[in-house]
Design a protein around this nucleic acid. Structure first.
Lengths: 215, 215
DNA sequence: TTTTTATCGTACCGTACGGTACGGTTCGGG
DNA sequence: CCCGAACCGTACCGTACGGTACGATAAAAA
């Protein structure tokens, strides 16, 4: 009975809101992930976080639990962008998409995102790990959830002719293209802010050419 | 002196043309990679290939050498598609792109490609492994090398208005979109042949809308 | 003040795996 | 026919790491 309560409490704490001390640990894990990929040991985490391995295992269960908590914590830090109201001009719509695309590309090419996606990809094969699922839902699927309402508004305002998955797929491809897979595979060429701006702008132009109402 | 010659010969053999027996081993590695990702052991390779671990190490040096040889071998199996001559109509050009896109998507969503890319991505962080480089060059970069001449021909025939990296990036995005990253992250939804056909066709239509000469 | 709880640091254990060594067998060349 | 090279199967070694146990310490609870 009491055990049950404690277990439930721990789960809630771990999945919803890590304590300050726990966040210190998760931050260390994130750093190590950027530095060494999946190769870091539990001992290295404990050492750098100045905590004992026993504490790690009590808080997070096992290594996979620690990784899961880290990924979920990072995902929770990404915030939804503000949505426009009903004052939908073509320019405002395009500008919203432009900001979105720029922000998206900036995040995707960041060290943390690359490390996280590498980890998730490499764990996606092992069926006894849900990291792939988590990153999938907090990455592509979350972007989709944010974009669909925007596309719907644009559609209702007769700015674009398509919406839903059709629009999302097109937008995704035009914005991301080969940027993410090249980064994941370790391509040396890093995009500058200027280039990202250019890519985002060009992608939005192309998207509006394809999906915009002809007039 | 004699050692040098042997070393060089070994390298050439290993990188260029694995023997039949070696190819059996590499095939086993490919299978294990699909089944277990990066987790398989050298012992499991030796067991399934009915060879000794000592032989594995003599042929491939170490585990990384075995993985590298496997990736290179797989890459060497992909063949260039036939290029059209000078009879360039819009229909022929579109059909070539269509076939290319269909084939590309089919390969990318296959088990072997997914396993290979997962491996390369997870090794791309560790700087003491060139797997990411190899897959990058035999994946995206190789596709680019094949497409650029096609785009150039289309440009010279006034079928499309752009060429080079601009055209490649657009085509890549429209064709691949979120398919590869979703597959790598373990999305359950597998594309059917019908869906791939539809995606390829739609992508080519969009590409020609964006980059085709208006007439 | 005493007791309990949580944590730290360290030591420890078992296992899995990369890499090596070796005896036995096959097979092609002299 | 014999010799040596290549190879198989197995055993072996060292290490690294996941996970556990334990004593020490400090703070909170009683």
């Amino acid at each position: 009975m009491n055990e049950q309560v404690n277990i439930i409490k721990e789960q809630v704490i771990a999945e919803e809101t890590p304590s300050a001390r726990e966040q210190e640990v998760l931050s260390v894990v994130l750093d190590l992930m950027v530095e060494e990929g999946d190769g870091f040991s539990m001992a290295s985490v404990a050492r750098r976080a100045s905590c004992s391995k026993e504490t790690l295992y009590r808080w997070f269960g096992d290594r996979d639990g620690l990784l899961t908590a880290t990924v979920q914590w990072q995902a929770s830090k990404v915030r939804m962008p503000k949505l426009d109201g009903d004052n939908l001009t073509l320019e405002a719509f395009a500008e919203t998409l432009n900001e979105f695309a720029f922000s998206w590309l900036t995040v995707l090419t960041g060290d943390v995102s690359i490390a996280l996606n590498r980890l998730a990809v490499s764990h996606a094969g092992n069926n006894k790990s849900s990291l792939g699922r988590i990153v999938l839902e907090n990455g592509p699927f979350a972007m989709r959830s944010r974009l669909l309402p925007i596309f719907l508004m644009g559609h209702k305002a007769s700015i674009i002719t398509v919406q839903g998955d059709e629009a999302f797929r097109t937008f995704f491809g035009l914005v991301i293209a080969d940027v993410q897979i090249r980064a994941l595979l370790g391509d040396d060429k890093r995009l500058s802010k200027k280039q990202i701006e250019k890519f985002a702008q060009r992608a939005v132009e192309q998207f509006l050419t394809l999906c915009g109402s002809k007039q």
